[in-house]
């Protein structure tokens, strides 16, 4: 068990390796490549932050705050800015309280997002995590639109060894949700995981469809612990803000699963989203394996990015 845990941790580090190297490269050249804090330094800093997908406006805020700090704290050397920047960013991502209440009570997890971000894969990984914790899990395959989406999820359900409720392509997804809810009640499961079809957030009808599913869950299980996860591809640019905003409007998002963090994308958009919309990241996907979903911890995340 202990061994497996260290394997887990190594994986997380591996996954974050790319992120760390990229940001470090950039940051180090900023902090060590300049002898004084001047406009060129700030411009370079802006470049590094923007290139990490943190976004123009959040980057602007960060730089303004750094500027103020430089004045107030009489910071002279660029490298001394480093710690301040790390603090600033980890503050941006700081989450308080229990962010995983669904782990100790009966709950329903509704997973939403645009096409191709990794919803189905994330559900497979979540199911695996819960199953490891000896939870009774049921999966609802409510992506009845994309060809073979149900088959894809079925493969995951079999791998993990949990039951799945599905229907054939073209079925009303709300009816799949309804069936799954009844089944969850009958089987007395601990956690119901609902997969949905990918949809672009600017498609009105599809967002209405999502609201409908959300309403059905509320109606059938009023007061149950609900978790609505928005799945975001870490390589997404500023459009992720629109996604988060629109999906939040449709159903209250309680957290983000940031996928594909094992690539070269820096995931800085998470900072922008937390800063502008206050939605916390709860999990990160760091690989294609069944174990490659990790709880998000803001402190170690930022540390892993900035520290050696």
């Amino acid at each position: 068990m202990e061994k497996e845990k260290s394997g887990f941790f190594a994986k997380l580090k591996n996954g974050l390796n790319k992120t760390r190297i990229n940001l470090l490269d950039g940051l180090d050249s900023v902090f060590h490549g300049f002898s004084e804090i001047d406009d060129d330094f700030y411009e370079e800093l802006e470049e590094v932050l923007v290139m990490a997908d943190i976004g123009v406006s959040t980057t602007g805020e960060i730089i303004d705050e750094i500027k103020t700090l430089v004045k107030v704290e009489h910071i002279k050397k660029p490298e001394d800015c480093r710690d301040y920047l790390i603090n600033l960013l980890s503050d941006r991502l700081n989450i308080e309280g229990d962010q995983y209440p669904f782990e100790h009570e009966k709950s329903i997890i509704f997973v939403i997002g645009v096409n191709g971000v990794g919803k189905t894969t994330s559900i497979g990984k979540l199911a695996y995590n819960f199953k490891q914790d000896k939870k009774k899990v049921l999966i609802a395959a409510a992506d009845t639109f994309r060809a073979a989406a149900t088959e894809q999820l079925e493969t995951w359900a079999e791998r993990v060894g949990v039951p799945m409720i599905g229907a054939k392509e073209g079925t009303d997804p709300a009816s799949v949700i309804y069936d799954a809810l009844q089944s969850a009640r009958a089987r007395d499961v601990d956690i119901l995981l609902c997969d949905t079809a990918g949809r672009l957030h600017n498609k009105k009808n599809l967002m209405e469809e999502l609201k409908k599913m959300n309403r059905i869950i509320d109606r059938e299980f009023p007061g149950i612990q609900r978790e609505n996860f928005l799945v975001l591809d870490a390589s997404t640019g500023q459009n992720a803000l629109n996604q988060a905003k629109e999906f939040k409007e449709a159903c209250d998002i309680t957290g983000i699963i940031l996928t594909k963090m094992d690539g070269t994308a820096k995931g800085g958009i998470a900072i922008a989203i937390w800063n502008e919309l206050g939605i916390p990241v709860k999990y990160i996907g760091v690989g294609e394996g069944i174990e490659d979903l990790q709880k998000f911890d803001s402190k170690s995340f930022v540390k892993a990015i900035f520290e050696d």
Partner: peptide, 12 residues
Amino acid sequence: VDAMIGQDSVNV
């Protein structure tokens, strides 16, 4: 390429 990709598009 996903049109929503951010700064990483260049690396990819």
